[in-house]
Design a protein around this nucleic acid. Sequence first.
DNA 1: CAATAAATTAACCAAAAGGTTAAACCAAAT
DNA 2: ATTTGGTTTAACCTTTTGGTTAATTTATTG
Lengths: 206, 206
Amino acid sequence: MKKQKNTAKQRILRSAVKEFADHGFWGARASRIAKGAGINKAMIFYYFSSKENLYRVIIEDTFKDLIEEVQKSMAKSDHPEKLFETLPEVYIRFFRKDEFMAKIIIHDLVQNPDHISNIIGQLFEKTPYKPQKIFQEMVHKWHKKGLLAESDPVHVILNIIPPSLFCFIGLPMVEAVLERKIKVDDKFIDERIKSVVNLIKRGMLK
Amino acid sequence: MKKQKNTAKQRILRSAVKEFADHGFWGARASRIAKGAGINKAMIFYYFSSKENLYRVIIEDTFKDLIEEVQKSMAKSDHPEKLFETLPEVYIRFFRKDEFMAKIIIHDLVQNPDHISNIIGQLFEKTPYKPQKIFQEMVHKWHKKGLLAESDPVHVILNIIPPSLFCFIGLPMVEAVLERKIKVDDKFIDERIKSVVNLIKRGMLK
DNA sequence: CAATAAATTAACCAAAAGGTTAAACCAAAT
DNA sequence: ATTTGGTTTAACCTTTTGGTTAATTTATTG
């Protein structure tokens, strides 16, 4: 657990996360970040030198945390059932902790796809063992053993992450379609995790 | 099929779709839209009065088309199996047709959730029968009959749309994680549809 | 305490943005 | 041929933006 200091730098970061989430990189305003952090605008450039760099720092920090958690969950899973039971929870709880980050990642993914690719690439380079190879081998092995119905790791990922990640961003659309407000409380989160786990276990396990 | 005229207005729309998709509303530049359309910047404001209005027109047009297709697919489905077999194809093919729109919708969903809610609300008001009621009743009826494992319409939607919609936006992330380029060609699209259909049929049907 | 380094601010700046305007252009109708 | 109406343009304007600067306050340290 990182220390939650209240230095000017920390307050800028917190305010910036919210600003980038609400307005995206281009919509984000340095003046609003400053106001939200209760500091002078010049401080942003004093500590982070540019808006772009501030953005990069935030994205990289978040991804480091997320990837770490996913790797932990993968390391513990010697069976696809175990993996499918834990992964949705990791993603959903991570993005619930601060849903702002979910929004920022989506923004980045849409506007600047190479950026996130590079960050993930760099983070993977530093780790001693190669998680990308491990995942592909896991899927391959499990499929051969007859445990997995889906054989392509690409689709395995595309079937797990979106239903987890999207439940925060997509909700307004669902609300409109069903003409009903949906409260994102602990109960809803638990139900969502259960539903996704069910979906991918029944949908992809043999 | 709408007529694909080549009037200045049409060219502005086409150029704007690409610009909004690549940069989001705030990142989009009127000057670039003009250059892309090969017209003078003033024409944008002559035909659409403001950047915001141009954006609104694009979003509303797209949604009208999408909702129409989804409703057609719903009307034909008297059984959940049928619905689960057709819906992913509708979404995936629709967003493949121009993936720009997928990006724009995501942008809008993240930055301005109320906007899309309102558009959907307005479109639904005009239709004689209420699709939102129909869908909820369908799910309820099917669940009671023992055809559906998932009883909550919210989760049914959240299990169908994200794996379909996200396969375009999320791909760069998957590529980074697996350290492999993925070509989005007809073959991939077919595979993706099959995978999603499989996932939600096995995952939610009883 | 004095000197130095770090943190903070108000005022400022150039560039770029969305948007306006008034004049020119052009096709069709009279 | 001239009027008329919709198009199209270059030049312009205002506001806002990310970013700078130079001066001031606050903390650190010898």
